[in-house]
């Protein structure tokens, strides 16, 4: 297993993988920091809220595509090039090779996201935000992003072991990504909206959504990522009054208080666990297939 890891890590560091991830993130972050500076956001909680919003939308989208594409070419491209025949003619097992390869990609993405955390902190400091209170959250956010990426890579591995042509697998990967990222969450949200009970508080609504997404989108890494990040705020109910035509009316309102990514991960521990478990399930399917496939 260690040899497969060494080979993949070496590939990751010497090819464009790591740099592609970094460049995409930095390329996306620069405008965000620039906008924050323009808007004069210097409060750390506001700043982390912007980063979370950015991560759950733009970064997740681009990195998700990148991860599934990397995974989708992991095996079939090596079969096409013949490198896998060289690798597996050596004193290594298939199981060790695929697990080592996956671990290598894990570390490459991990390094990229670790560097991203530093870039984020540097960017926030440049904006003028005091990062001491939110350093842990920036790292946790990237850990969460890493877990999501790893699940996408594992889905890519399944595609790579079932679709022989690396060109075709790229198309399949994009199709699967669209289904998992857009189509199914839209369908599930629509169904949820139809059955939504009335008079739910914000916390209850969040929990209701989380339950729905856990039940019907447990296989979608991006959906689980969003559900977890939805819990970063704690909502407090306040009763407000308003005067209309001389009459005083009271109504319910909510104030959002940032509670941290650690709190969100604890509250949505099931969803964090799902990210890990489903990664193992997907990787298990890909491994099962790899152990049986002809590598010609």
């Amino acid at each position: 297993m260690f040899w497969g890891f060494q080979l993949e890590f070496m590939k990751g560091m010497r090819t464009k993988k790591l740099w592609a991830v970094l460049l995409i993130i930095i390329g996306l972050y620069i405008p965000v920091f620039y906008l924050m500076k323009q808007e004069d956001i210097t409060n750390e909680l506001e700043a982390i809220a912007v980063m979370i919003r950015f991560s759950s939308q733009t970064a997740l989208f681009f990195l998700g595509i990148l991860a599934i594409i990397f995974g989708a070419g992991a095996i079939n491209k090596e079969i096409e090039d013949g490198t896998i025949r060289i690798a597996l003619s050596k004193s290594v097992t298939r199981l060790g090779y695929i697990l080592g390869k996956y671990s290598g990609q894990l570390v490459v993405f991990g390094v990229a996201l670790l560097l991203t955390s530093f870039v984020t902190l540097a960017g926030l400091q440049w904006v003028g935000v005091s990062v001491s209170k939110i350093t842990a959250d920036v790292f946790l956010l990237n850990v969460l992003l890493l877990l999501t990426m790893l699940e996408f890579i594992a889905i890519g591995y399944i595609i790579s072991t079932f679709v022989r042509s690396s060109g075709a697998s790229l198309g399949v990967a994009l199709g699967v990504f669209f289904i998992l990222y857009v189509l199914l969450p839209t369908v599930v949200s629509y169904e949820m909206g139809k059955n939504l009970p009335e008079n739910l508080s914000m916390e209850e609504l969040n929990d209701y959504t989380a339950n729905y997404y856990t039940k019907y989108l447990f296989y979608s890494p991006s959906a689980q990522f969003s559900v977890i990040l939805d819990a970063v705020n704690e909502y407090k109910e306040v009763t407000k009054t308003i005067e209309i035509n001389g009459e005083t009316h009271t109504y319910r309102d909510y104030t959002a208080e940032y509670a941290g990514i650690g709190r969100a991960m604890r509250k949505r521990a099931v969803n964090v666990a799902l990210l890990v478990v489903m990664t193992l399930v997907y990787l298990g399917i890909a491994t099962w297939r790899f152990l049986r496939m002809d590598l010609r």
Partner: peptide, 9 residues
């Protein structure tokens, strides 16, 4: 040859 090396089944 591929069979000898366990590359096809």
């Amino acid at each position: 040859i591929l069979s000898l090396l366990g590359l096809v089944f």
